[in-house]
């Protein structure tokens, strides 16, 4: 029992990331009809927002520390972050420590801007082009963004720690009444899951309870009819794109402590997120979320040693296998609606 709960928990953080990316992909696909191969790049840019903020806050100048000396007997040169000087040492240190959560605030305007520029500057011109062209141009964009990040930040992963209080793990099993050390779970993964649930809830609430969201949902169901009502749907869809970019971005920011950001993380997540979207059903938002968590958890189960002993390497391919089975048995995915993307 405890092993099962542990694996479910282990699947939650990846599942959350899949769900958030797939949610954005579905929003863009449902509203604009574009399959965005650059969506993984948005996730990656989000993660690098965290890296950037961390680096900015840690920018330092050299001061002499008269209390300590180096091996030549001169006063030691100590790097002091500017923020220490501006806000005092305690506040400054706290700012650096909390750079990842702070990066959410930093990333939202950045991501919305990136989203707007992408949609207005590039994707807008491809609405009337064939789907293949849309895939290709966003794929090209994904390469360019990824290579730009690589040339500025290098090819190696950059460790970006979570705040001090969230580092380490806690014994989740004891809380549920299991033996100690049965379920050890890192704090930050719990935070990530809670955060994702919050974002997913917020997106659904936004679509459900605001007029804006109602129009967008109507547009997803039938674009032409909504257009006939005289509502400027294009403008709303642009905003929608910015929103989807922001969702992918904050998902990336918060993921930075779990996996050190590198330039190809976006592409790695993108392929799996596509599978998630297909399994969930193209165009279905609840389907994307459900499939995201489901596949994340199944992946965790498949990486258990007991499972791998029976079928070696199953953890590497389980997601794809499930996608193939779903497509063969339910071609529209788990929650796909009829008529979405069919001939």
């Amino acid at each position: 029992m405890d092993a099962i709960i542990l694996q479910i928990l282990n699947g939650l953080d990846k599942g959350s990331a899949y769900a958030l990316i797939a949610l954005g992909l579905t929003l863009i696909f449902g509203t604009l009809g574009v399959v965005n191969f650059a969506h993984g790049a948005l996730f990656m840019i989000g993660a690098f927002c965290a890296v950037t903020l961390n680096k900015l806050l840690s920018l330092s100048y050299m001061v002499e520390d008269p209390t300590r000396t180096d091996f030549l007997g001169k006063p030691l040169q100590v790097a002091t972050p500017y923020v220490h000087g501006w806000f005092g040492e305690a506040t400054g240190e706290a700012l650096i420590d909390w750079s990842v959560p702070l990066a959410i605030l930093f990333s939202i305007p950045v991501m919305i801007a990136v989203g707007f520029i992408m949609e207005r500057g590039l994707i807008k011109h491809f609405y009337k082009r064939p789907h293949a062209d849309q895939i290709l141009v966003t794929f090209g964009l994904a390469i360019v963004l990824q290579e730009l990040i690589k040339s500025f930040y290098g090819a190696n992963p950059i460790p970006t720690p979570a705040p001090e209080v969230f580092r380490g793990s806690f014994d989740f099993g004891v809380m549920l009444g299991f033996d100690p050390n049965a379920i050890i779970y890192p704090y930050w993964r719990m935070v990530y899951f809670a955060f994702s649930a919050l974002i997913i809830g917020a997106v659904f609430a936004f679509l459900r309870f605001t007029t804006f969201g109602m129009v967008v949902r109507a547009g997803m169901a039938d674009r032409e009819t909504v257009g006939l009502l005289g509502i400027n749907i294009d403008k709303r869809f642009t905003i929608m794109f910015g929103l989807a970019a922001a969702v992918a971005g904050v998902a990336g920011v918060m993921y930075a402590p779990i996996n050190s950001p590198n330039y190809h993380m976006g592409m790695d997540f993108l392929v799996l997120s596509f599978v998630v979207v297909v399994v969930g059903g193209m165009g279905s938002l609840p389907g994307a979320v459900l499939a995201g968590f489901m596949l994340g958890i199944l992946e965790a189960f498949a990486s258990m040693n007991q499972v791998k002993a029976i079928i070696p390497g199953i953890d590497q391919i389980i997601i794809y296998l499930i996608a193939i089975i779903i497509i063969l048995t339910r071609p529209r995915g788990l929650m796909g609606k009829k008529g979405v993307m069919e001939e």
Partner: peptide, 13 residues
């Protein structure tokens, strides 16, 4: 089994 975008994604996966 599927066409269009689905096909691209399936081959990719």
């Amino acid at each position: 089994r599927r066409s269009g975008i689905y096909f691209s994604i399936l081959t990719l996966a």
